[in-house]
């Protein structure tokens, strides 16, 4: 893994500056166009985040120096829909994004981000829009997002967001990467396999 790969351990309070990205249904092809999947590692993906959107929109937030180095990405609804490519959250995590706050997420994206230790918090549209506006007006503002309570604070703004319970508990306990748990009681895995008709000649 490269040094900028996501860290292990418990994830609770994420603090840093924000980057607002407005728009519904931003799919993973837009986050990471398919030509950047032409590689056998995830290294360097952060350079290609939203590459085509950025080329056509000079005012794209990921082109905006005021938001460089941001930690919290603030999006609207159905973020990360489409392709299951983990390259999308990998690129975001490698660019320094440690949490995403939005109205809603595609399930696969939210799961993939969780596997990298990046929580996707969901909150109401109005609250999200206020947060986006606040960041646009004061890009230097420090935002704090708490996994345990779902509380997100940004200057005068306080909003309550939610995470699926299992993901929340996984972040808090540091067990958001489940491989070790899945391997933990392998006898039980074998027991299920031995009961399945299609693995045992029906």
């Amino acid at each position: 893994m490269t040094p900028d790969a996501p860290a292990a351990g418990a994830v609770n309070v994420i603090t840093g500056r924000g980057i607002p990205l407005r728009g519904d249904d931003i799919d993973t092809d837009r986050i990471m166009p398919a030509r950047f999947l032409r590689a056998t590692s995830f290294d360097g993906l952060e350079r290609h985040l939203f590459e085509d959107d950025r080329a056509t929109r000079p005012d794209h937030p990921f082109n905006d120096a005021r938001f460089a180095g941001a930690t919290l990405l603030v999006v609207n609804s159905n973020f990360g829909c489409g392709s299951s490519r983990e390259h999308a959250p990998q690129g975001l995590a490698r660019s320094g994004i440690r949490a995403i706050v939005g109205e809603s997420f595609s399930e696969i994206f939210q799961g993939n981000a969780a596997m990298l230790g990046v929580p996707c918090f969901a909150a109401e549209r109005q609250a999200i829009e206020r947060l986006q506006t606040l960041i646009e007006q004061t890009p230097d503002l420090t935002i704090a997002a708490r996994v345990d309570s779902g509380l997100i604070t940004a200057g005068p703004l306080r909003l309550t967001a939610t995470l699926p319970a299992a993901l929340r508990d996984g972040f808090l306990s540091g067990q958001w990467n489940p491989t070790a748990m899945l391997l933990d009681r392998f006898d039980e895995v074998r027991a299920v396999a031995s009961r399945l008709p299609y693995l045992n000649g029906f």
Partner: peptide
């Protein structure tokens, strides 16, 4: 297989 400590299903 089982319910994981996280509450998700294995």
């Amino acid at each position: 297989v089982r319910t994981l400590p996280s509450g998700q299903t294995q």
